[in-house]
Design a protein around this nucleic acid. Structure first.
Length: 671
RNA sequence: GGCGGCGUAGCUCAGCUGGUCAGAGCACACGGUUCAUACCCGUGGCGUCGGUGGUUCGAAUCCACCCGCCGCCA
């Protein structure tokens, strides 16, 4: 019998800028689901991609002085590299500029006109070019764009429209027959009350005001506008409308999709317009649309103007993909918003990954070597303690599967960690070192086997979330392939005795909290202090979502000592350095590494927190003339405000402040 | 303004259709342990479950109103 299929998608992202950690969240969640389903024996199709049309792309490319396709290719390369770094196991990556997509969209459009679902009319309204948004007269704020506050133009444009109203009754009936279609449920009411009950408006599906898009075949001054282009990626990618019979078979195999993961801001398009488009095409509807929440920063949504956008690659480089994946999936209840704080990140990594899981694996390997010759021993008779752990393992598997089916990743991880904690506790209760000392070989073997077996189960289960660590432990513990399968974890007591176990360095390093908080403060300070061109926030994910981020610069070839991208003098010039004199210094309570400094900059005296307490006594700093970055965004470290940064040179062991001769006045510019 | 949601220990949050539901993790205090990444284990204090009324034998859990946040829409 053929394997059951599972088709899962992320939104296609709008590549007018680099993506941020919010996009990574959607993609990581979908990846965890895809990996889970593969482990469960499904034939999985996991699709992601990019939505590459629209005026804003065109404008961005022009700003960058590049041909549009070149501009896009460079960003797509960056995005694919990000997914590689995050271990995203997508099966296909669709770009809406590919012929397999554009050709089919053209045909769909023709067909829908012929069917009478699409008709020609006029679109009137106020248009904000940067936001690519139309506004009704009454929506304007003092005649300006309500989103960004900039000028809008009145436009009257001939447009094609999709007759949505025709399908409303069928849509409502579908909702009723498929109560789980929209997740979380609360979104469903919003949709019905806000869009459907008041009367669903026809959707504008073409534009004549720009030409970076798929032309309408019979009327090429029009290009297909956003949703009919973007949403259809979910079917064109798997072969809908293809000339190739193999691809058509693929479509038959995977459609309808099992779930579309989307950010909550685009739920509406996926649960109203997309089903209606599919009805018009006579295709079955997707089984589920899951609108997840946003990853917020402490001070609200991520946005460039707040300087709180984090480049995911910097995080991955520092902590590794497993760590970032774990944090995203554990910290944010799927469907709700979650908050990114440096403290939460470091604590999750230290407590859950290093202390609980990593240490369990590490201490067990050490004991296996020290007590029983470096192999998983053969167990003797079980006692109540072993039965209890086995029982908990069985319960954990049941809970885990249930929560994964509900797509509650954070709860599923909590389930696994409950067993990890129990295993750590079991070790303490059984005290193998005491058994060893006492010479109780049979008990010792039983205990060590039981711990190894628990580690085996956990390592299999953990793979959808942190694939590297899971696989690494299975290899370290010499687990045979047949005991790495999901099904094999239904039994506690697999014959893994005699497997040779390696001693390896800890899976996850324990992080120094102060050091990391300071480093993360640096990462979130936003590296291009330029004020954002508009106030809209970078949304977590989505078609046409309004995103601010860094423009992709041409890729520099690092040479010699250089490891970062080459920057222009204009970028460096944004950093304001001045001479400052340390007037006072004392330790920050509850922090090993932090000193609170008062620095005299001539015109003012500022408080700056610096992570140099390991290298200096507070007294010896008084009077020193140092170089201060004065235009850094203020941050709080351990609750103490820091309004700048002191420059220092450092190696692994040493650290010296960059100092200036005493005759230079406080406040003098350094450049 | 309309619709919806939320407000539970210092922090982040679980608590479905009312009766061991007053909980978990972190933080804090004390104790234990040494295999391990100063790690793990145990014990303990802490909460008027946003406020006020009401339904009920009994409400964090249902209802009404109020306060404060938030989401979608207008």
């Amino acid at each position: 019998m053929a394997k059951p299929t599972f088709y899962i998608t992320t939104p296609i992202y709008y590549p007018n800028d680099k993506l941020h950690i919010g996009h990574s969240y959607t993609t990581v969640a979908a990846d965890a689901m895809a990996r889970y389903k593969r482990l469960r024996g499904y034939d999985v199709m996991y699709l992601t991609g990019t939505d590459e049309h629209g005026q804003k792309i065109q404008l961005r490319a022009a700003e960058a002085g590049k041909p549009v396709m070149q501009f896009l290719d460079e960003i797509i390369e960056w995005i694919k590299d990000l997914w590689d770094k995050l271990d995203i196991s997508y099966d296909d990556f669709i770009r809406t500029t590919e012929p397999r997509h554009t050709k089919v969209v053209e045909e769909i459009f023709e067909r829908l006109i012929d069917q009478g679902d699409i008709y020609l009319s006029d679109y009137e309204g106020w248009y904000c070019t940067p936001c690519e948004s139309f506004w009704a007269e009454r929506e304007l704020v003092e005649g300006k764009c309500p989103d960004c506050g900039r000028e809008v133009q009145y436009v009257s444009e001939e447009s094609y429209f999709f007759r949505m109203s025709k399908y409303v009754d069928r849509l409502l009936q579908f909702y009723e027959e498929h109560p789980d279609f929209i997740q979380p449920e609360s979104r469903k009411n919003e949709m019905i009350n806000n869009f459907i009950k008041p009367g669903l408006k026809d959707l504008c599906v073409s534009r004549t005001s720009f030409d970076w898009g798929i032309p309408v075949r019979r009327d090429p001054k029009h290009v297909v506008y956003v949703w009919l282009d973007a949403l259809t990626n979910y079917i064109t990618a798997i072969g809908y409308g293809s000339d190739d019979p193999k691809m058509r078979a693929k479509f038959e195999k995977y459609w309808p999709a099992d779930v579309h993961f989307v950010g909550k801001e685009i739920v509406r398009f996926h649960v109203i317009y997309w089903p209606i488009i599919l009805m018009a095409l006579g295709l079955p509807l997707p089984k589920k649309v899951y609108g997840h929440g946003f990853l917020l920063m402490k001070d609200g949504k991520m946005s460039k103007s707040k300087g709180n956008v984090i480049d995911p690659k910097l995080l991955i480089d520092r902590y590794g993909s497993d760590a970032i994946r774990y944090f995203l999936l554990r910290e944010i209840p799927f469907g709700q918003d979650g908050v990114f704080t440096p403290e939460a990140l470091v604590e999750r990594l230290n407590f859950d990954l290093a202390n609980d899981f990593g240490n369990l694996v590490h201490r067990t390997a050490a004991m296996l070597h020290r007590f029983v010759g470096g192999r998983v021993p053969l167990p003797g008779a079980r006692t109540d303690a072993e039965e209890e752990l086995a029982e908990l393992a069985g319960q954990t598997l049941r809970d885990l599967e249930q929560h994964m089916d509900e797509m509650q990743f954070s709860v599923a991880l909590a389930d696994i960690w409950r067993l990890i904690r129990a295993a750590n506790k079991y070790i303490d209760d059984m005290a193998p070192w005491a058994l060893h000392k006492r010479g109780d070989e049979e008990r010792l073997r039983t205990v060590m086997y039981t711990v190894a077996e628990t580690i085996r189960l956990v390592s299999v289960w953990v793979q959808p979330f942190i694939p590297r660590a899971g696989l690494q432990v299975l290899e370290q513990y010499g687990i045979a392939p047949e005991f790495r399968t999901w099904e094999s974890t239904r039994t506690f007591g697999a014959p893994i005795g005699q497997s040779p176990v390696e001693q390896r360095p800890p899976l996850f390093p324990r992080l120094d909290v102060d050091e990391e908080l300071e480093a993360l403060a640096g990462l979130t300070r936003g590296r291009d202090g330029a004020p954002a061109s508009r106030a809209t926030d970078a949304e977590a994910a989505g078609h046409g979502a309004k995103q601010e981020g860094q423009r992709v610069e041409s890729t520099a070839t690092p040479t010699g000592v250089q490891t970062k991208e080459t920057i222009g003098i204009d970028v460096f010039d944004q950093v304001e350095l001045r001479v400052g004199q340390i007037r006072a210094a004392d330790r920050v309570p509850n922090a090993d590494k932090l000193l609170r400094l008062e620095v005299d900059l001539g015109a003012e005296t500022r408080q700056i927190v610096s992570g140099i307490a390991k290298h200096f006594q507070p007294e010896e700093l008084i009077g020193k003339k140092v170089v201060v970055v004065v235009n850094l965004k203020p941050v709080k470290l351990r609750g103490v405000a820091s309004n700048g940064m002191i420059l220092a040179a450092s190696t692994e062991e040493q650290l010296q402040l960059v100092t200036v001769p005493d005759f230079m006045p406080n406040g003098a510019v350094v450049k």
